[in-house]
């Protein structure tokens, strides 16, 4: 039996998860998430981690491997670090065993990953450059329109005539949006327009790493945004040679933490097997 923890330090929130792995069976013992909101992420990571320990009725010494991911390299008590695409890939497979592609939609970057059935990363790519297609931008616009985060998706799917945002720079795009409001374009159509432009970028990202008929699991902060999921579906449907389907999971935000924990257990077992490490108990 291997006990492992995954701690995922993101831009918006810190997530922690603890797993028990025995003979290939993976059991999720505990989880915890804390929003960062201008607090020290390192401290929050420790808090979230302690919370999960408590929920799982474990002590830190009981754990065989503590894996960090995201921006958690600096956490002092970790055993190993996995980079977020590595862990998201594994987390996605855990959440849905058929998900061999992952779209991690975070506040600033989008990441596309293709894996095999074991969660082995076969290819990946991140968005870069200007941020007009980022989650942060969407959040700003929503605030401008007076729309709560959790309402965005619901409104977006009501769009009947989505208006596309043309500008490449997010600041200029913001002005575009202001112009739209003054032209009487409705909030659903504006939001859908942004979703579509984000989705188009992300879909291109998926295609460029060789996604064809995979099931795409959306993870990260925007995973629960129905509007984005729907827009992604539309954009992928338009794409020749791509038959991919998009899905999400209520626990999608934990994908990084789950993946880190499971890779931690995996790595631990390799190390034990190769004699590089002696099992404590």
């Amino acid at each position: 039996m291997t006990l492992s923890a995954g701690i995922d330090v993101g831009t918006g929130a810190v997530k922690a998860a603890i797993f028990k792995v025995e003979d290939g069976r993976e059991e999720w013992l505990a989880r915890s998430t804390l929003r960062i909101r201008q607090r020290d992420p390192m401290q929050l990571a420790e808090e979230a981690f302690n919370e999960t320990l408590e929920k799982a009725s474990l002590r830190i010494d009981d754990l065989d491997y503590i894996a960090t991911t995201g921006e958690g390299e600096a956490i002092p008590f970790h055993t190993g670090h996995f980079y977020s695409m590595t862990s998201h890939a594994r987390g996605a497979i855990y959440l849905n065993e058929n998900a061999t592609a992952v779209l991690d939609c975070g506040a600033l970057h989008g990441r596309a990953i293709v894996t095999d059935k074991r969660g082995k990363v076969l290819g990946y790519k991140m968005t870069s450059q200007c941020a007009s297609g980022s989650g942060q931008f969407l959040e700003n616009i929503a605030r401008y329109l007076g729309i709560a985060q959790d309402e965005i998706g619901k409104l977006s799917v009501q769009a009947d005539e989505p208006e596309t945002v043309s500008s490449i720079c997010a600041v200029l795009a913001e002005t575009d949006v202001i112009n739209m409001v003054s032209r009487g374009i409705t909030a659903p159509n504006i939001l859908k327009g942004i979703h579509l432009s984000m989705a188009s970028r992300l879909a291109r990202l998926l295609k460029s790493i060789g996604v064809t008929d995979n099931l795409v699991m959306v993870t990260g902060g925007l995973a629960l945004d129905k509007g984005l999921i729907a827009a992604l579906g539309e954009e992928l449907a338009k794409m020749k040679g791509v038959e991919a389907e998009v899905t999400s999971h209520p626990d999608s935000i934990y994908a990084g933490a789950i993946g880190a924990a499971l890779w931690g257990a995996f790595r631990y077992e390799i190390l034990v097997a190769s004699g590089q490490l002696l099992k404590a108990s």
């Binding site: 831009t11 992420p41 200007c130 942060q136």
Partner: peptide
Amino acid sequence: TCTVFAGAELRDRLA
């Protein structure tokens, strides 16, 4: 000086 990434740079440096 990309406006939208300003926040990220800020956080990076504070960290």
